[in-house]
């Protein structure tokens, strides 16, 4: 067993260190002999054992005696631990690649590859919501039973379905938006954007957006893009709405009348109610073919979710 451990360890170190390559070869020779049902007579095991014991014996004779006597058992323990930790590492790497977190989808525990947890930060819902708070609880996020018919949907030639629940005021929604656009473009996916006022009052923007879509159709997407990529303070200032509408040569009066109508206010209000049915706890929350991704994940995470075989 010590040879197997040595082979793995020295094999990895040997990639970078020539002096360890010979040890790796010795370990391989030993392992090969064992798996071909021959005794390992290379002396490798005793060599490693001798080196290990000589380090310990100068610190504690008792410990060295214990290690010497139970070397095989200890080797097995370390082997199991090594296999476990190796599996753990590979699992973490896989999850990080696919979900943006070593701990799994929408899990916010510490991840060595994303130590600051950027991929899982969201704007929590509520009156005192703040950007950048890491969610403490998990919810069952779902689109089942949620009526999205009143939201603007871009129909594309692809079969994939992307639903983005974002907030115009939230940095993380704004951060992820370019990647979403890139994703839609590359994958030709169907795309629904749902505004949710997670932080501050952005309902007026949702109402305006609804009316822009109603009046100008496809031009909505340019308007929406501006709201999520333009200068935030300017956009969130309600008094600047007309200026924004003016940039797109929209009929300000017409859009305002529409936005202020009771019908539209009711619709937007109902939209928020519908979105709550998803059990959303923060924005951005992106549903890709029904699977929820909370927080601004790297682009590859969304792409992987659409790929047939993760990488392609």
């Amino acid at each position: 067993m010590p040879c197997v451990i040595a082979l793995i360890i020295f094999g990895i170190i040997g990639i970078f260190s020539a002096s360890h390559r010979d040890l790796a070869k010795e370990a391989f020779s030993c392992v090969f002999k064992r798996i071909t049902l021959r005794p390992c007579d290379t002396g490798f095991k005793e060599k490693i054992k001798g080196k290990v014991l000589s380090k310990i014996i100068n610190r504690s004779t008792f410990l060295a005696r214990m290690v010497n006597r139970h070397y095989e058992v200890l080797s097995w323990v370390f082997f199991v631990l090594m296999i476990g930790s190796t599996f753990w590492v590979f699992s973490g790497v896989y999850k990080f690649y696919v979900y943006g977190s070593c701990n799994g989808l929408n899990q916010s525990g510490f991840c060595a590859f994303d130590p600051s947890g950027e991929n899982n930060k969201v704007t929590t819902l509520g009156d005192n919501s703040t950007c950048g708070i890491t969610p403490a609880t998990e919810s069952s996020l779902t689109l089942k039973g949620v009526d999205l018919s009143s939201f603007v949907r871009k129909t594309n030639i692809g079969k994939d379905e992307v639903v983005v629940i974002g907030c115009y005021a939230c940095d993380y929604s704004r951060k992820v938006y370019p990647d979403i656009l890139k994703l839609i473009e590359n994958k030709k996916a169907n795309y629904t954007f749902a505004s949710y006022p997670a932080k501050g009052d952005t309902t007026f923007l949702a109402e305006a957006g609804y009316c822009v879509n109603k009046i100008y159709g496809e031009k909505y997407w340019e308007f929406n893009k501006y709201l999520l990529e333009g200068e935030k303070d300017f956009i969130l200032d309600k008094s600047n709405l007309n200026k924004i509408l003016e940039i797109f040569n929209f009929d300000i009066k017409k859009v305002n009348e529409c936005s202020n109508s009771t019908e539209v206010k009711t619709i937007v209000e109902n939209q928020a109610k519908e979105l709550k049915k998803t059990n959303i706890y923060g924005t951005p929350t992106i549903f890709i073919n029904g699977k929820a991704f909370v927080g601004p994940k790297p682009y590859r995470v969304y792409r992987s979710a659409m790929n047939k075989y993760i990488f392609f």
Binding site: G43, E46, K47, K49, G50, K51, L53, S54, K55, I57, N58
Partner: peptide, 13 residues
């Protein structure tokens, strides 16, 4: 006892 082990230890120690 495999004396190789002893030899290695003497060298290392």
């Amino acid at each position: 006892v495999d004396m190789n082990k002893i030899a290695i230890m003497l060298d290392e120690m």
